[in-house]
């Protein structure tokens, strides 16, 4: 019953403007309207973290955000982590350390890990576990993800 709104926001550094239902989920707008399908839906209840994106620099579950609340905001998705052809140090570390197995949790995991390293450049195992606790992975048992984050942190520190 609501009128569509013109949503203006910055996604991965690019200004976007589109007509959407104000209560549409950010997840659906990213995937269906902007064709940024890197962000995944794993549960639709804010539990698995596969839909994690950075909203104004903070991690959020995009399945729990109505787009009316991101009017004028800045959103970073997994597609925005690389600089052109160059993977971010975290993305590269996930490849070399086998931090991605099936890959479905990976986009959200990378966003959460990027945020973690922004806040905490040299995390301990415990800090990584805490920082990624909202991102469920069923393949890895998390060890290889911890390895990848440590490796990227070391790279950053050097």
């Amino acid at each position: 019953m609501a009128d569509r709104i013109t949503l203006t926001l910055k996604v991965n550094g690019e200004d976007r403007s589109l007509s959407v239902h104000p209560f549409a989920r950010l997840l659906d707008v990213l995937r269906e309207d902007l064709h940024l399908t890197g962000t995944k839906e794993g549960c639709g209840e804010g539990e698995c973290g596969a839909c994690t994106v950075l909203l104004n620099g903070q991690v959020v579950n995009s399945c729990l955000v109505p787009v009316v609340q991101v009017q004028g905001a800045e959103v970073i998705t997994v597609e925005g982590l690389a600089q052109g052809e160059n993977l971010s140090s975290l993305q590269a570390a996930f490849v070399t350390h086998n931090g991605a197995q099936c890959g479905f949790c990976t986009p959200g995991m990378l966003i959460a890990a990027t945020d973690l390293l922004n806040r905490c450049p040299n995390p301990t195992d415990g800090e990584i576990r805490d920082g990624l606790a909202g991102n469920l992975c069923r393949c890895t048992g998390y060890s290889k993800i911890l390895d990848a984050v440590h490796s990227a942190a070391d790279g950053v520190a050097r």
Partner: peptide
């Protein structure tokens, strides 16, 4: 923040349809 309401909405169990942000 939507962290409770959106969960119930996504599950199709939210009676409310009009929201005040």
């Amino acid at each position: 923040g939507g962290t409770d309401l959106m969960v119930v909405y996504n599950a199709g169990r939210l009676k409310a349809t009009r929201f005040l942000d």
